[in-house]
Design a protein around this nucleic acid. Structure first.
Lengths: 233, 233
DNA sequence: CAAAATATTTGATCTAAATCAAATATATTA
DNA sequence: TAATATATTTGATTTAGATCAAATATTTTG
């Protein structure tokens, strides 16, 4: 039986859809897309694009880690986290709206390629299989973000933080022991709480033997229990 | 200057993208799609589709009002509200996943047409302009739901309820005075709070002259002030 | 390396909104 | 129409988590 639980009720934002769009394109189309692609390196904390600015490209992350977020008056809501190899900024393909509806920023040094959005629109208009692929990617982002939405509005702080830790271990770093590249502030933002609450829950999790924190590495020691905390809310 | 504020920071879920996909299709394609479409009437409160079930159609709402929502253990998160004429259930177009990730239910008696999902996939694969249209619709849903996400996680109860009232007046009924078809429970679910909180805030809003409630009609008396409450959170 | 700046932890207090409880009001049914 | 069920309002109490405040730790910089 299939478990649709992760998508619908967890805060994890990592995609399952394969980014194998190149297979779909003809040699001429590949040449076209490559001629309109540049590769850019971003240093830790640099902003890739800003909410409200004109959207002139679609990004693919090849190395690193980045987040997309809505900026409010004095707060931010993280929409998604992207690790390699994923497409970022697809919702700029909304017709009649050439503006970013959210910002993007890298957590760590990252390597992205930027594809001119005009080419993407052009390929969508000429290659239906490519357009179908884009539908699938955007639909998945919708479902994933809805799941995160559910998590942040329905679960309590412990469940939300457990969720974020599980996502990091299972899907981003793909190992229970991983380098701690995120600050408490990043965790707070990701799990929708204050820095102080994150700190307190980390202390509790450490004390209960769920995680360990030693020289810049975080290890998930009791994944089943973390999963229980995540699902109970 | 364009205001992207409504989309990015309000709980309103009503689309701006025109549902003019029929213009895009050839006469043969129109015949095909029509041969795979049925019209169904739903009575108040009936469920159109359930989270976890197989997705075999895309819905278009012609009359009435419906919501999509994620079902948790003992709670629900309303993702979007749809009024005529909108497409519902598009995210089922995610490849390799034929399951609904959320449920849909009508608030009032509604008339929908149901289009077999296979036809939609087929048309997307053969007609790139149609597929591009679908990308635009799904991208818009993503952005709209993200805005609602922001609203429900960042604003306080007064702002959230003001938001819902403004959406009803401005975009769903398109008049400041409209029939009260939603219960307190519906409002509570829409604005992410308890029935008691809704009731208390309604009393306050009535007392402050922002709204009036008389025999089954709700009227927005002071829209600028409601907008201020919505934006201040 | 010391000093300054920044990040994290821990404790005390406060508060928005939930929960609990009971009183109306409205709708439904016999 | 009375009786029952359901929905709404209002008040009292509780609580999860924020805010405020101060003490470490860690990092950065001159």
């Amino acid at each position: 039986m299939i478990d649709s639980n992760r998508l619908t009720r967890s805060s994890c934002t990592i995609s399952d859809v394969e980014l194998d769009y190149r297979r779909i394109l003809t040699p001429e189309e590949l040449e076209l897309i490559d001629s309109k692609t540049v590769e850019v390196k971003y240093r830790k904390g640099e902003v890739v694009f800003k909410q409200g600015s004109f959207a002139n490209n679609i990004c693919i992350i090849h190395e690193g880690l980045l987040k997309t977020y809505i900026e409010g008056n004095d707060n931010r809501l993280v929409l998604q986290v992207f690790s390699p190899v994923k497409m970022v900024g697809l919702s700029a393909l909304l017709e009649n709206s050439h503006v970013r509806h959210y910002s993007a920023q890298v957590y760590v040094e990252s390597r992205l390629s930027l594809i001119e959005i005009g080419v993407i629109r052009q390929l969508m208009a000429s290659n239906a299989a490519f357009a179908s692929k884009v539908v699938s990617l955007v639909a998945e982002q919708f479902i994933i973000t809805s799941g995160r939405f559910y998590c942040l509005t329905m679960k309590q702080t412990y469940g939300r933080l457990a969720d974020v830790l599980l996502c990091l271990g299972n899907r981003i770093y793909r190992t229970p022991r991983f380098p701690l590249q995120l600050s408490r502030k990043d965790f707070a933002e990701l799990s929708g709480m204050t820095i102080e609450s994150v700190s307190r829950i980390f202390t509790k999790f450490k004390h209960d033997g769920l995680i360990s924190l030693d020289n810049d590495y975080l290890e998930l020691l009791d994944i089943p229990k973390l999963e229980m905390i995540s699902s109970k809310g």
